[in-house]
């Protein structure tokens, strides 16, 4: 057990190191210059502009050799300093991210957990129920194949514009100021619903179809047939089959996490939802190295932590992984 988690920790640490390095390098490989971008928004005379360019380059630490920038970046990172945003100058990157993260989490966590739970339950229920299998699962295929933003646009158009029940942009009404009051909370939920629904539906389809195929395989396995021969009721056989079919789904969840985060990015852009997604989009458009780095760092940490929890969950659920560890 100790060895297993020791090895896992090393794997996670090296993944973290590599991912963060890539995260640092990618924005710097983009064409263009963040300082030029910043200066282009203020109109000053040419010579003043040159002086300001020199000043800002120094201020952001972009005047030193690249390898030194890289080392400085790690040192700052261990001090919890992600730098200052170029685009939202002079706000600190950490502060900008902290403002956006609650919105992203409020979208992602319920969408992931609810779709995983209901999708699996529904898939298991639909398997071997002829009518559901023939009618609703094709819908599941359609949902899971739908790109997040396409479904988002479709929902915004149908429920937002045609029917007009839900707002299509923002996190709360523009004429409201954030406060802890019922109207504000109601407005939050109303704005949250459509982006949540588009994330939920796409993933729901995927889980339902995966579970349907897995549980049919389990219901056809030898242990299910043996239980049938011993006259076990359908509910018991289904219970065992569901539990065993869930194991590969949990692995799938770990693999899906990264994709889901990306899905939430485009969804946030579609609905102008002020989470990490919209932030990353503006950061990229403005070539804001530090903000891009910070946002992706947050995603990297999130995905790694989620994967770590899934690893632990797997050990608890599947005795075979536990025994494999003891046998090492």
């Amino acid at each position: 057990m100790k060895r297993y988690f020791g090895r896992k920790t090393i794997i996670y640490l090296s993944t973290f190191f590599l991912a963060v390095t890539v995260d640092w390098a990618i924005p710097r490989l983009m064409p263009g210059d963040p300082i030029m971008n910043l200066l282009s928004r203020v109109s000053v005379r040419a010579e003043a502009s040159e002086a300001m360019y020199g000043y800002y380059t120094k201020a952001f630490g972009l005047d030193i050799p690249v390898w030194k920038q890289y080392i400085n970046f790690w040192i700052a990172l261990f001090h919890g300093d992600l730098g200052t945003s170029v685009y939202l100058f002079p706000q600190k990157v950490v502060d900008v991210i902290i403002m956006a993260v609650p919105y992203s989490i409020a979208l992602l966590v319920p969408a992931i957990l609810l779709s995983f739970y209901t999708g699996n339950k529904f898939g298991a229920f639909a398997a071997r129920t002829k009518i559901l299998d023939n009618t609703l699962l094709p819908v599941g295929y359609l949902l899971t194949a739908a790109p997040y933003m396409w479904l988002g646009i479709l929902l915004a158009w149908s429920l937002g514009i045609v029917v007009g029940i839900f707002p299509t942009a923002g996190a709360y009404d523009f004429n409201m100021a954030p406060s802890f009051s019922w109207p504000f909370i109601f407005s939050l939920i109303k704005h949250w619903f459509l982006p949540f629904l588009s994330l939920f539906l796409v993933q729901f389809g995927g889980w339902a179809i995966g579970m349907r195929n897995m549980i049919i395989y389990e219901l056809e396995s030898d242990y299910s047939h043996y239980l049938e021969s011993l006259g076990a009721p359908r509910s018991l056989i289904r219970k065992y089959a569901y539990r065993n079919a869930l194991l590969p789904q949990i692995t799938g969840l770990a693999l899906q996490l990264g994709v889901i985060v990306a899905g939430s990015l485009v969804t946030e852009v579609v609905f102008s939802y002020p989470g990490l997604g919209s932030l990353i989009l503006s950061a990229i458009q403005n070539k804001d190295y530090f903000l891009i780095q910070g946002c992706f760092l947050f995603i990297i940490i999130g995905v790694l932590i989620a994967n770590f929890f899934i690893d632990i969950a797997y050990v608890i659920i599947d005795p075979r992984t536990r025994l494999g560890m003891a046998g090492e």
Partner: peptide, 20 residues
């Protein structure tokens, strides 16, 4: 089944649910 008539299946080695 089980009470009056029972079977040891051909696949007896895989007949038990592996995760319980």
């Amino acid at each position: 089944r089980f009470k009056k008539i029972s079977i040891i299946p051909q696949y007896a080695m895989n007949a038990l649910n592996p995760t319980i």
